[in-house]
């Protein structure tokens, strides 16, 4: 699947997008975040804000317990500040 990062999540990870295959057992958004955090200090830093990091699956907002099976694109970003 494709992972996308925005705003300071993107800056902390150091890239805007990447392809990734989560290992078996990673079934939800929260579990995906947990796995990403184990990939290095830049991910750890990006996700250290925990539940305030928002996610979208295939361009729709997704809660931490949302299943990721079949997702083509998962995005992570801070709370939105438009308007």
């Amino acid at each position: 699947m494709k992972l996308l990062y925005f705003a300071w999540v993107r800056e902390r990870i150091g890239r805007a997008e990447e392809e990734a295959e989560a290992p078996a057992g990673v079934a939800t958004v929260a579990e995906l975040i947990g796995w990403l955090r184990s990939r290095g200090p830049q991910y750890e830093r990006a996700f250290e804000a925990g539940p305030s990091i928002r996610a979208a699956i295939d361009k729709r907002h997704a809660k931490p317990d949302a299943p990721i099976a079949g997702a083509r694109e998962i995005a992570f970003f801070p709370p939105m500040t438009g308007g």
Partner: peptide
């Protein structure tokens, strides 16, 4: 429309001042 847009449309503001750039924090009131 405005209230919903502010909390659900994926936009992020970054302010540029003489101190450099800084991301705007979301507001609980929104």
């Amino acid at each position: 429309l405005m209230d919903y847009l502010k909390t659900s449309a994926p936009f992020w503001k970054r302010e540029e001042t003489e101190d450099g750039p800084a991301w705007v924090a979301s507001k609980a009131t929104d």
